[in-house]
Computed example of a mutant assay.
Amino acid sequence: MIHNFNAGPSILPKEVFEQASQAILNFNNSGLSILEIGHRTPLFETVMEEARSLVKELMQLDEDHEVLFLHGGATTQFMQVPMNLLKQDGVAAYTETGTWANKAIKEAKLFGHVEIAGSAKESNFTTIPKQLSFSKTAAYLHITTNETIAGTQWHHLPYDCGVPLVADMSSDILSRTLNFNKFDLIYAGAQKNMGAAGVNLVVINKTILGNAERVIPTVLDYQNHIKEKSMLNTPPVFAVYVAMLTLRWLKEQGGVAAIETINQQKADLLYSTLETIPFINLPVAKEDRSLMNVVFTMKDEMLEKEFLQYTKDANMYGVKGHRSVGGFRMSLYNALPLSSVQYGVDVIKEFAAKKG
């Protein structure tokens, strides 16, 4: 059995794989594959509507918030957000917390001025900024709620920041209870907690749109996608279907609150084990550690190659750290069972005992 700790695309529930594979052969007993049905047929329209409705239900969204499923992943949103929200001579506030926040900052600078509201650069991105400072005339404040590479996560969110709050939630979407209505725009690639690669979730408060004072290409204008209910152009049909199945699965588990309890158990188990091993270093400040992406290194670099091979031999997949930082990373997304984390902990203890 493979235990999948990959950071993304990542593990999905077994039930989702089974249902999705059946749909490739025969979708809803139609005799057609999900891969060949028309996106404007009732067969798929019901899929899109259920996916959107499930997001609204799981997030408990109010009537001002719209749900979109779009192409391009979170990377497209790095430029689509400022294109829609930031005036050419305007200012947007961004927090600088790691690789993904920095990518968002780079794209925003193409559309206006960027103000760094808080930075973790001095700590080498091992912390989350505790004090934010930015212009109250800013078009919005942007945060990356979870940094998959740095292994940090916002646990105290700036809900009442005085300006529209925008969040990249790609790696912790629907993994914990939040007041989602406090966010004016949320975006998240589906391939970590919510489905397969190829589709991006956008949740947007429609009252903040229409003020950018620029010509926005038709397919990049959120208002057009809202009007057409995510069917402005051909959506990524299969990816939306897998997202819908995953959202169904999450609801069946008891929703976001229930999965948060399990996610906390998984993180507590792994972090508490790693803390007991003398030759392992946990670089992230304890209060800012991610519940989704646990990063660590070996104090003796000579052990790293040996440890990686040990995990591979034990059928642990995706433990190697990101190529830009090295070390190790174990991702604990929604679909990863607690039993896999227990197995991983046992393997780590075995390795430590051999080196003890």
Score class of each variant (00 low, 15 high):
Asn4Thr: 12
Phe5Ala: 11
Gly8Val: 04
Pro9Gly: 10
Ile11Phe: 02
Pro13Asp: 12
Lys14Glu: 11
Glu15Phe: 14
Glu15Val: 06
Glu18Arg: 13
Ser21Phe: 15
Ile24Gln: 15
Ser30Pro: 02
Gly31Phe: 12
Leu32Arg: 11
Glu36Ala: 05
Glu36Tyr: 05
Thr41Pro: 07
Phe44His: 04
Glu45Trp: 15
Glu57Ile: 12
Thr76Glu: 07
Met79Cys: 14
Asn84Gly: 07
Leu85Gly: 00
Leu86Gly: 03
Leu86Trp: 02
Asp89Gly: 00
Gly90Phe: 04
Val91Lys: 01
Tyr94Arg: 05
Glu96Leu: 03
Glu96Gly: 06
Trp100Asn: 10
Lys103Pro: 06
Ala108Arg: 01
Ile116Arg: 09
Glu122Leu: 15
Glu122Met: 09
Ser123Ile: 07
Phe125Ala: 07
Thr127Pro: 09
Thr127Val: 07
Ile128Phe: 08
Gln131Trp: 00
Leu132Ala: 05
Ala138Gln: 15
Ala138Cys: 14
Tyr140Cys: 00
Thr144Asp: 13
Thr145Lys: 07
Asn146Pro: 10
Ala150Tyr: 06
Ala150Gln: 02
Trp154Phe: 10
Leu157Ala: 05
Pro158His: 12
Tyr159Thr: 15
Asp160Gly: 10
Asp160His: 09
Gly162Pro: 14
Ala167Asn: 12
Asp168Asn: 14
Phe180Lys: 07
Leu185Asn: 01
Ala188Phe: 00
Ala190His: 06
Ala190Tyr: 04
Gln191Trp: 11
Ala197His: 02
Val199Met: 02
Asn200Pro: 00
Leu201Arg: 04
Ile208Thr: 05
Leu209Cys: 00
Pro217Leu: 03
Val219Cys: 10
Leu220Glu: 00
Asn224Met: 01
His225Thr: 13
Lys227Asn: 07
Glu228Gly: 03
Glu228Arg: 11
Ser230His: 04
Ala239Ser: 15
Tyr241Asp: 15
Ala243Val: 08
Trp249Cys: 13
Leu250Trp: 09
Lys251Pro: 06
Ala257Arg: 03
Ala257Asp: 10
Ala258His: 07
Gln265Arg: 04
Phe279Gln: 06
Ser290Tyr: 05
Val295Pro: 06
Phe296Thr: 03
Asp300Pro: 00
Asp300Cys: 07
Glu301Leu: 02
Leu303Gln: 00
Met316Cys: 02
Met316Pro: 04
Tyr317Ala: 12
Lys320Gln: 13
Arg323Lys: 15
Ser324Met: 12
Val325Arg: 15
Asn334Ser: 03
Leu338Gln: 02
Ser340Cys: 06
Val341Phe: 02
Gln342Glu: 10
Gly344Asp: 03
Val345Lys: 09
Val345Glu: 11
Ala353Ser: 11
